[in-house]
């Protein structure tokens, strides 16, 4: 265990990348998710079809494959991305598909009367969506979104295969140096666990605060 302590700064740097990639992907995934959810419900036929196809393809293929396509695959067409941007792009696209389903469900759960009340006071459909429907849908969407978020934190360990020195790869590098496995793996397992726990606590707080509002 002493080895883990001695190399903690290095591991923490890996944890930092893990966190960074999670947060960036979650942020852009959220934006993609909202847009795709709305596109699937209010877009015209071709838009709806594209949105459905996107969700279907992302949910039907492994994240690992999506990562290598963005990082390695695109080089065939002269698009060379650094590892971290590639990871963020692939994971944002991935998480956007899952979140769009979460949002779609949450939006559909808002009673039709809410939309009608807003229309009746003269709001446009965009205003109704942003001011009346989405704020209420967000509350419904937060628990499943939290799960996706924590899932993402752990799934980022896959980015080590495209050479991002995240938490898992930091451990692998140390293992290659010291020739012992267990202390490092246990060490990073604990670090993943701590990060997940902190996130769930924060999410619980947010949930509770939103519940109090009405």
């Amino acid at each position: 265990m002493q080895l883990v302590w001695d190399n903690l700064p290095f591991l923490l740097k890996g944890a930092g990348y893990t966190l960074l990639i999670t947060i960036i992907s979650m942020f852009f995934g959220l934006i993609i998710g909202v847009i795709v959810a709305i596109a699937r419900m209010q877009g015209n036929r071709p838009i709806r079809w594209v949105a459905r196809f996107y969700v279907s393809i992302i949910r039907g293929t492994p994240v690992l494959v999506q990562l290598v396509i963005v990082y390695y695959g695109l080089t065939d067409y002269g698009i060379t991305l650094d590892a971290i941007p590639a990871a963020c792009i692939a994971l944002s696209i991935n998480i956007g598909a899952y979140l769009s389903e979460t949002f779609r469900g949450a939006i559909l759960s808002i009673p039709k009367g809410q939309t009608e009340a807003a229309y009746a006071t003269g709001m446009t459909s965009a205003q109704t969506m942003w001011r009346i429907v989405l704020p209420q849908a967000a509350r419904t969407a937060i628990p499943p979104m939290g799960n996706t978020f924590i899932g993402m934190l752990k799934e980022t360990s896959l980015v080590s295969v495209i050479t991002v020195t995240d938490l898992l790869r930091s451990a692998d590098l140390l293992i290659a140096q010291y020739y012992v496995y267990m202390p490092f793996y246990i060490g990073i397992a604990i670090m993943y666990w701590i990060m997940s726990t902190i996130f769930s606590t924060i999410l619980e707080r947010i949930e509770r605060r939103l519940a109090k509002a009405y």
Partner: peptide
Amino acid sequence: QTGMVFQQFNLYPHKTALGNVTESLRMV
């Protein structure tokens, strides 16, 4: 130019009584 009052009220649950009234004053 028309107002509507619904059987099920359809108030916005995430807004206060005042917020329900002012929403469209601000938006529209």
